[in-house]
Computed example of a mutant assay.
Amino acid sequence: MTSPYRIAVFASGQGSNFQSLVDSAHNGRLGAEIALLVCNKPQAPVVERARKAGIDCFLFEPKAYASRGDYEREIAAELAERGIDLIVLAGYMLLLTPVLVDLYAGRMINIHPSLLPSFPGINAIGQALNYGVKVTGVTVHLVDGGMDSGAVIAQQVVHIDDDDNIHSLEDKIHRAEQELYPRVVSWFANGCVHVEGRRITVKHD
């Protein structure tokens, strides 16, 4: 019997995308076990979501460490002990160093609320709305250490209507994220993702 595909979710806030992954795991659509939540804010609501779901947590406060590398080495040890196959960033509000990025090259993904390479960085939803584009969306990409610069795995378009405001557009974006992210994780769990440089293909059996 093969071991289950194991993921660790890194999150810092409310945990809505974390919850969508949990729900997909429970209904059998994720194809993976969420083995660990890594969170740098022990009081964040995502921690309670993990506890309700029976998921182990690695909680830490960055200020307790001398450097980012120090706490990332501790995280890396936790990941190795649990046999983590994929790191899934879901609102993790810390910059990552090569300690983790290099260790999990090709096995660390993030979701961004725009159609990259348009509107990288913070406030991507507001950037798109203020620019006046007619479509935006969400992008799941590999993490390469740059600012939203990793190779694109999947994108989902979100249309901006004339009467949209920041709140309505955020709602649309969040719904798209919660639909796309579990699907992409399932592709990894099923061995469907193939990486050749910046070109990523998804090949289903």
Rank of each mutant, 00 (worst) to 15 (best):
K134W: 03
Q156C: 12
L89F: 04
D144C: 05
V193E: 03
L59T: 05
K52Y: 03
Q155F: 10
V99A: 08
D162Y: 11
G28W: 05
V202K: 01
L95E: 12
A105G: 11
N190D: 13
L86N: 08
Q43H: 13
G91L: 02
L89G: 08
V184T: 04
G126R: 06
M93W: 09
S3G: 12
T136N: 04
R51T: 11
V47H: 00
P42L: 08
I166M: 13
P117E: 10
E78F: 05
Q155K: 05
S149I: 02
F60Y: 14
L180P: 07
V46Q: 03
L86I: 10
E48W: 01
D23Q: 12
G31Q: 02
G145F: 13
A77F: 00
A64V: 07
V135K: 11
L37M: 04
K41S: 15
A128P: 02
H204R: 12
F60V: 01
F60G: 03
I173S: 02
I122C: 06
G106C: 10
P42F: 05
L142T: 09
R68Q: 12
D164S: 03
V185G: 07
I125M: 00
V88Q: 07
I109H: 11
H204D: 13
G145V: 13
V46W: 03
V46A: 04
G146L: 11
Q19P: 00
D205Q: 12
P98E: 04
D161L: 14
A189T: 01
I173N: 01
P113H: 07
I166D: 13
E74K: 11
E196W: 02
L142P: 01
A25S: 14
N17H: 03
V138Q: 05
S12V: 09
A90R: 01
R175P: 01
V143W: 00
S16C: 10
D144M: 04
Y131H: 15
G31A: 00
V193F: 02
S149Y: 08
A11T: 09
R51K: 14
V185S: 06
N130F: 01
Y71K: 02
R51D: 10
